[in-house]
């Protein structure tokens, strides 16, 4: 926005500050629902309600009960381990296949580029309920429904569009003469990839990986269909927590996850700064 010039009229000044107020309100709208769950996660009663005790700031209205529940209840622990077993594997699959394909797609002559792109992006745009139902029937027939690999494959395919989008974005700014130089200097394609291309597109790959990871980690519609009890992930357990037993444990978990998200986002930001430095773009 910059500073107002000294000759600004009164109207301009009013508008200038009103604009900031509006933006602040919108930021408030964005953040408030996330902030509000934090005190609720310390509720002593098992309901999503601000009790009179909580509003009086009476310590009796607060407890760590739901945090304790998360860390001791075997359902939640199993769900966490399931999520941690499924999400990294799904991420690995979508990142490795996705990065290769993104490199292929960014070559100058790719036949049928449009249709191919449409197919690869489709998991993001097809409504989840349709994907979930389709995979449910199809995977059942292949014997993949209700197995670890079934859920991993389903989640991997949902993460692919994110990898494709982020990696092709970094490849757009990629200087092709670097690979040619490497080839000229006698490096094979594999070596060129790992020594030249990979370090430069790494930020895109990592950010795609984070998106793919979060897609799997936060996915509830597809896993409800494709998974079975043995693959109960955290979002699934949260869904049960919302539907079947009112359990504010999901708020405790959410608070933990918000803290982790902040950590991840900060990492992402630092990575981006590094990438810009590497590509010679200095931040303003």
């Amino acid at each position: 926005m910059g500073k107002l010039p000294p000759y600004a009229t009164l109207g301009e000044k009013v508008w200038h500050y009103a604009f900031y107020v509006i933006c602040a309100l919108i930021f408030f709208f964005l953040i408030f629902p996330i902030v509000v769950i934090i005190p609720l996660s310390f509720n002593a009663l098992p309901y999503f309600t601000f009790t009179p005790e909580m509003l009086r700031l009476d310590p009796a209205g607060y407890s760590l009960e739901h945090y304790r529940d998360f860390f001791t209840n075997s359902d939640w622990q199993k769900a966490m381990w399931n999520s941690l077993a499924i999400a990294p594997m799904a991420t690995l699959l979508s990142v490795s296949l996705g990065t290769l394909a993104a490199i292929g797609l960014s070559q100058s002559h790719v036949p049928f580029r449009g249709p191919i792109m449409a197919v690869l992006i489709s998991p993001m745009i097809v409504p989840l309920i349709i994907s979930a139902a389709g995979m449910y029937f199809f995977y059942s027939r292949l014997g993949l429904q209700g197995t670890y690999w079934g859920v991993v494959l389903a989640h991997a395919v949902l993460g692919i569009p994110f990898v494709i989008i982020t990696v092709t974005a970094t490849l757009v700014g990629f200087d092709r003469s670097l690979t040619r130089a490497a080839a000229n200097l006698g490096a094979g394609p594999v070596r060129t990839f790992f020594r030249v291309q990979m370090p430069l597109i790494l930020p895109g790959v990592i950010s795609g990986a984070l998106f793919a990871f979060i897609t799997s980690f936060d996915e509830v519609v597809v896993v409800l269909f494709v998974g079975s009890a043995g693959q109960k992930t955290l979002p699934w357990q949260m869904f049960i927590g919302l539907r079947e037993n009112i359990s504010p444990t999901i708020l405790a978990l959410a608070t933990i996850l918000v803290a982790l998200s902040i950590l991840l986002l900060t990492t992402l930001e630092l990575l981006r700064r590094r990438s810009e430095r590497l590509r010679g773009l200095t931040p303003q």
């Binding site: 077993a85 990294p88 594997m89 690995l92 670890y148």
Partner: peptide, 12 residues
């Protein structure tokens, strides 16, 4: 990542 998830998967 691969090693960890394989480990977790097998332990489950």
């Amino acid at each position: 990542l691969m090693a960890t998830s394989a480990l977790i998967a097998s332990s489950l």
